[in-house]
Computed example of a mutant assay.
Amino acid sequence: MKHFSEISPTAERVVDAAEGLIQQHGYNGFSYDDVAQLVGIKKPSIHHHFPKKEELVAVVAQRYAHRFRSELLSIEGRYAKATDRLTAYAALFEQTFSVNRRLCVCGMLAAESDSLPELVAREVTQFFKVNLVWLTQVIEQGQRAGMLNSKVSAAALAEQFFCALEGAMMVGRGMQSTGGPAIIGPTFIAMLTMA
């Protein structure tokens, strides 16, 4: 599999188109014909860059996860307090959702996990692990500082927060709501800070 940093500008346009299609329709909801139409190239050109759909989607997930990790590092550089980091983290989900109720690429793919090729499933799992480890560390920091509830383990709270944000996107789309993560993020953080 190619690494996303090694692809050509044309292949990057293909990845961009596939990302948007995944966020709207999932893995099984789009074809190379859909990508070709969006990019304005012939289907054989897509196959030249990505012989199999699973390779294309794995690169999409890989690039998405890399950008997300970069955002996590940026949050660490901008905010010292755990609550501020968690607020900025929730804003990442809202940024995605605010564009036509798009969903997290890896969240959307995970909804189809039983039918995903192993190559794609590995990228999705890695994305989830990175997020849960990061959130656990942030919550542990907040608990040590006495800012966050320590009656529940940091790992359990991290998983609940992550699930709440991913779920808020799904429910927000299903309800045709503009709320989504913008409401759930602050609510969950407020619950974490209550004594």
Rank of each mutant, 00 (worst) to 15 (best):
F4Y: 15
E6D: 01
I7F: 02
S8C: 01
S8T: 04
S8L: 01
P9D: 06
A11I: 14
E12H: 14
E12G: 09
R13M: 12
V14G: 09
D16K: 11
A18K: 04
E19W: 06
Q23S: 15
Q24W: 03
H25L: 12
G26V: 14
Y27V: 13
N28R: 07
F30W: 12
D33R: 15
D33M: 11
Q37D: 14
Q37A: 15
V39E: 05
V39C: 06
K42F: 08
K43G: 03
P44V: 15
S45Q: 14
S45Y: 05
S45E: 13
H47L: 15
H47G: 04
H47I: 15
H49D: 13
H49G: 09
K52L: 13
E54V: 08
E54T: 11
E55A: 14
V57C: 01
V59K: 00
V60N: 01
A61C: 03
R63L: 01
Y64R: 11
A65S: 14
A65G: 09
H66R: 06
R67L: 07
F68G: 05
R69S: 02
S70L: 00
E71M: 00
L72Y: 00
L73E: 03
I75Q: 05
I75R: 04
E76R: 10
Y79E: 11
K81Y: 05
K81L: 07
A82T: 08
L86G: 04
Y89M: 04
Y89E: 01
L92M: 14
F93E: 10
F93G: 05
E94I: 03
Q95R: 15
F97R: 08
S98N: 06
S98I: 10
N100F: 12
R101A: 11
R102Y: 06
L103N: 10
V105D: 03
V105P: 01
C106P: 03
C106V: 15
G107N: 07
M108W: 02
M108E: 11
M108P: 00
E112Q: 02
P117R: 07
V120F: 07
R122K: 14
V124L: 02
T125W: 04
F127W: 06
K129C: 11
N131F: 00
V133N: 08
L135S: 00
T136I: 02
I139Y: 00
E140Y: 00
E140N: 00
Q141E: 13
G142S: 12
Q143A: 11
Q143P: 05
R144D: 11
S150V: 06
S153C: 06
A155Y: 03
A155V: 12
A155S: 14
A158I: 10
A158Q: 04
E159Y: 07
E159T: 12
F162M: 03
C163T: 08
A164V: 08
A164Q: 05
L165K: 05
E166P: 02
E166S: 08
M175E: 07
G180S: 06
I184N: 00
I189C: 06
M191G: 05
T193S: 10
T193C: 09
T193V: 13
